[in-house]
Amino acid sequence: MTTRSDEATTRGDEEMSTDDAKVRRVELAISLVLRVGVTVSVAVIAAGLALMFVHHPEYGHLSGPFSYHRLTSNSAQFPHTFTQLGAYLEAGKGRGVVVVGILLLILTPVLRVAVSVVSYLYERDRAMTLVTLFVLAALVGSFFLGGVLS
């Protein structure tokens, strides 16, 4: 999958002007960030989910008296602050690992914007550097506004 399109890219690059080649490099860098981001986060989420089932054998039956509803009701217990998350991870709980994976997934688009700022800066594309820098600032600002980081 990757090799075939990479070959196509190299062939295409020869015909491209230098401007097009620059655009292409940024595209490939961003595609790579997204791919690595989702691969790592889904691996961590899957590992955490597996750990949950290992720690709680009663979850793992295909039929039985234990209903999923107890885990999805409003009184279900799971970490939603960084302090709680730390405690869950220290105890080696699968829920904590899943949450880490989900946070990595949430951070992937942010990282994607950060990488595009650096790429455009590197390609000396001033207008797009400013555009992406503004988006990054707004994105980080929204985390502060939401009270996540403050």
């Binding site: 889904v42 989420i45 989910l49 939603h80 899943v98 989900i102 707004a138 985390f143």
Partner: peptide
């Protein structure tokens, strides 16, 4: 992503629901 942080802080992201959905 801009609003996901808020949902996490409010305790709306339940791992046992979010994990299978994400995968």
């Amino acid at each position: 992503a801009a609003s996901a942080g808020v949902y996490f802080a409010r305790g709306q992201i339940d791992p046992i629901i979010a994990a299978p959905v994400a995968i």
